[in-house]
Design a protein around this nucleic acid. Structure first.
Lengths: 229, 229
DNA sequence: CCTGCCAAGATTGTTGACAATCATGGCGAC
DNA sequence: GTCGCCATGATTGTCAACAATCTTGGCAGG
């Protein structure tokens, strides 16, 4: 018998549901201010309400969802100022991590990284936003894990997750995906070449575009006076 | 009647229980590897098991408690290597925050800060470890909040919480408490005097002692070969 | 015509009981 | 005497019904 998943533990199902909802938010299936009704989600995702409940609590902690007592959960609209603050911390942390990666990079990091880079490139080529999103996450996780400090990686991932709600703008945009793809390639190159300065610069630049695109989009689309329905 | 707490919302009770358990861990009431039985805690703290359950999940996320499926929760023993990693990130983040505090410090920050510093000093003088712990948390929260980036503050607090389990060594030690008291005074002085370099240096130095004391204590007391019961 | 209140429906929050799982100690086989 | 198995008790995990709360629509009064 397989060692895993003989019986899906609830904690796993919670994680699965949370990840699924996160994806739907990132991919724009669920829009900001959209209500998330527990029973409806439970039925749609084939789990008990209790599981959905915990998943929503998880997403609330992360910041993707807002939960008001007795009123339920809605997809959160990130305030541009907040996004700016998060990105400024991300920049520091990701720079720090990049600086701590021991170069030359170990082959057992570089190999998987190249594989994930290719996976991402293929998803982009196929116009598969979900695949690109997933590959992108795994790429950065693998990259930053090479810094050797799991707690730093955890922080970086947590911050990235916080602004995932801001990704719906760029997650499906061919230009942004292509740009990310090329930047990933450049990062791998810098790693392989042992060029730390370039790597750090690339990591920093990698953050800018989605942040700016989101802020521009939000200010244009959502923050019109009079809380556009 | 007070405006708040007309009815204690469950989410608040969860937080309260989590904070209470955290304190008991920090103050050494609950020792590493000690089992945390849900029903027992529920009765002792006067809440339903469900609330304890969520609180334990919270503490697990934070890292103070370890939860094994179907086997329950135990107070987690922090691995010294992990503690070192966490402290190294803390150092970066707290330095960053200290550097971003706009000087001269605003009076509406300095005032409360001085009050908390005194509260802490009084608790130390009275040998009130719990009071000192609480005042200490509030002091640092107030201090770092002055950096203007709530997300950075959140990260700093989260990391501090992660190593709270390591505080049981120093939380009741008069020497460490006295030292912290003096360093707090010096920080306030540096803030009031607008001396950023001194402030940053103080923040950095402030971290060292409890880290080192914990590592020394753990290596001496808990990590003997043969998992000393 | 507008305002405030009340009832109905929808949704979340809470609880206790039940099921599943795991540690413990006793018993028999070898 | 030791090893392995099974019954038992303790503990956690799951669930569905019930209670509390909020929103919505309608109606009466001004």
């Amino acid at each position: 018998m397989p060692v895993t998943a003989l019986k899906a533990q609830t904690v796993d199902r919670v994680r699965t549901v949370a990840a699924r909802l996160e994806e739907e938010i990132v991919l724009g299936w669920l829009l900001p201010r959209e209500r998330l009704v527990e029973e409806e989600l439970a039925e749609r995702l084939g789990v008990k309400r209790h599981v959905v409940r915990e998943a929503l609590a998880e997403l609330e902690r992360v910041g993707l969802v807002e939960r008001i007592p007795n009123r339920g959960a809605v997809v959160r609209l990130l305030d541009p100022a907040e996004v700016r603050q998060i990105y400024s911390v991300r920049e520091v942390l990701e720079t720090l991590a990049a600086e701590q990666i021991s170069l030359p990079i170990a082959p057992d990091v570089l190999g998987p990284l190249r594989a994930l880079q290719q996976l991402h490139a293929e998803a982009v080529a196929a116009g598969d936003a979900r695949g690109a999103f997933r590959a992108n996450i795994r790429f950065h996780e693998t990259l930053f894990r090479a810094c050797g400090n799991p707690h730093l990686v955890e922080l970086i991932q947590g911050l990235a997750q916080k602004v995932h709600g801001a990704r719906s703008i760029t997650a499906a945009s061919p230009e942004h995906l292509a740009r990310a793809r090329d930047e990933h390639a450049a990062m791998v190159e810098a790693l392989a070449g042992g060029d730390r300065g370039r790597l750090v610069a690339l990591c920093r630049q990698h953050l800018g575009p989605s942040r700016d695109a989101y802020i521009a989009a939000v200010e244009a689309r959502f923050l019109r006076p009079g809380r556009g329905s």
